[in-house]
């Protein structure tokens, strides 16, 4: 009798597993069709750096603390500024933390991929440009009736 009970139990467990899977057939996907659908990160995200040229004194603490040595201090007239090579940057933002003049800031701009290595070098002038938020509007939410999914941000 025992093997039959075991088989019945196995059959029931299999059907329970199938039913759980079927219930999720119409669940909204977790994924986004990037770059058409773009994920919106919150303020405080450690994206690319924003350099305030007026505050920077060119002291070079950012270059000293950088774990990846991706910062070079370059001259502009009689002043010095950091230049970033994003091919090496690990976005730890210790440079931002250790800047004594608060000249560096983290931004929500994360899509900074380029086709060539040269374009990954960000000059002080390019770092000083305000961050671009291209149509980033999807956020992850668990409030939906069918569970967690990416939904357009409210008020967008």
């Amino acid at each position: 009798m025992a093997p039959i009970t075991g088989k019945v139990k196995a059959a029931i467990s299999s059907w329970v597993a199938y039913s759980v899977g079927l219930r999720h057939l119409f669940h909204k996907p977790y994924t986004l069709k990037f770059p058409q659908q773009r994920y919106a990160v919150e303020a405080g995200f450690r994206g690319r750096h924003l350099l305030h040229l007026d505050r920077c004194t060119g002291c070079g603490i950012c270059a000293w603390i950088c774990p990846e040595k991706c910062i070079t201090i370059v001259q502009r007239g009689d002043r010095w500024f950091p230049q970033y090579f994003y091919g090496r940057c690990c976005f730890c933002h210790f440079c931002t933390d250790y800047c004594p003049e608060f000249a560096l800031e983290e931004t929500v701009e994360y899509d900074i991929a380029e086709y060539t290595r040269e374009l990954l070098v960000w000059s002080p002038e390019r770092l000083a440009r305000p961050p671009v938020r291209k149509e980033d509007k999807y956020v992850f939410s668990v409030d939906g009736p069918r569970g967690a999914s990416q939904v357009p941000e409210q008020g967008h």
């Binding site: 977790y30 919150e42 450690r46 690990c90 730890c92 933002h93 210790f94 992850f140 967690a148």
Partner: peptide, 20 residues
Amino acid sequence: DRELFIDLAERLTGARITYS
């Protein structure tokens, strides 16, 4: 479902995986 917590960690630390 890992996204549930990756997203939370991103809000807390600013990074999705390697937080430092």
